[in-house]
């Protein structure tokens, strides 16, 4: 009882500290009139006009379609690598393949946890800049820039999903003589699959956005086109490209919902 009470208190204290930090941060923002700069209002108006009348000329649509395709291709390739690595690292850092809870168990777990932390410490945009600087503008720069941090993020979340699988059925599998790999197959995966898939899809959406943004630095794709049109102040074109981006994200979301429904049904 004493223990539980202490635990409860320490949680409440932590919550209060976090709330105070949040409130303090609100005061450190300057809420002055400078939030929107002088010429800002006219630009904003132009943007709204563009939103109401996007440029749907055949030429722009074709361009948008091609760029969307490139953006999607980078995202798919990057995510495929990230899911593979994230899965392997996630399994290893969750410790579910490791036998006893000895020192070596924690050493292995922490090693892979550390690796995952390292992978996701650096933002994909920074990776993209580094790769472009090193290898020039190439699709690989975009693909690896997505794959590296996303492996780290997926691995971390996959690992948590695996450790949250109900314990009792796994105990029974062990009592049935299942090895660790058999437990992964017959226990961890069936329980974790819906969550793994829906999280991977959510990350896939993020990868599409990242892939679009990354093309700002010269790698082809929707972001690159958005940047060009912005420079020319063609906001109606910008909106066409944005609509393609939004459309892609929405399609991925629908697809993931359909898949999840089938798995959970």
């Amino acid at each position: 009882m004493q223990h539980k009470l202490m635990y409860f208190h320490s949680k409440t204290i932590l919550t209060i500290v976090m709330l105070l930090t949040f409130i303090a941060s609100l005061f450190s923002v300057e809420w002055g009139g400078e939030l929107v700069h002088a010429g800002g209002w006219t630009t904003m108006l132009q943007m709204i006009q563009g939103m109401l009348q996007p440029d749907f000329s055949l030429e722009i649509l074709k361009l948008a379609f091609m760029s969307a395709w490139i953006t999607l291709a980078y995202a798919v390739a990057g995510m495929t690598l990230a899911v593979l690595f994230g899965f392997v690292f996630g399994v290893l850092s969750s410790g579910i393949l490791l036998k006893n809870r000895g020192a070596s168990h924690y050493a292995v777990k922490n090693f892979f946890r550390g690796m995952l932390g390292f992978l996701r410490a650096i933002h994909e945009l920074v990776w993209a800049l580094l790769f472009v600087a090193a290898t020039g503008i190439s699709p690989f720069a975009a693909i690896f820039a997505i794959a590296i941090p996303y492996s780290g993020i997926l691995g971390r979340v996959f690992s948590d999903i695996f450790t949250n699988v109900p314990e009792k059925p796994l105990q029974s599998l062990r009592a049935n003589g299942a090895t660790r790999l058999q437990q992964l197959l017959y226990g961890y995966l069936p329980f974790a699959a819906p969550d793994l898939i829906s999280y991977a899809f959510y990350r896939f959406e993020c990868a599409i956005r990242s892939s679009a943004i990354m093309s700002f630095i010269g790698l082809g794709g929707l972001g690159f086109q958005i940047q060009l049109s912005m420079q020319d102040l063609h906001y109606d074109e910008v909106w066409t490209f944005l609509i393609f981006l939004i459309g892609m994200v929405m399609i991925v979301d629908l697809w993931s919902q359909m898949l999840r429904k089938r798995l959970v049904a």
Binding site: A178, T179, Y186
Partner: peptide, 27 residues
């Protein structure tokens, strides 16, 4: 709560064979 709910009944029953099976056979 002792069975793997998302799996079909047959796989839960065959889990009793996992002691005899290697990894590839179970896969």
């Amino acid at each position: 709560f002792d069975l793997v709910g998302p799996l079909p009944v047959i796989h839960n029953v065959l889990a009793g064979k996992l002691a005899d099976w290697g990894f590839w056979k179970s896969l």
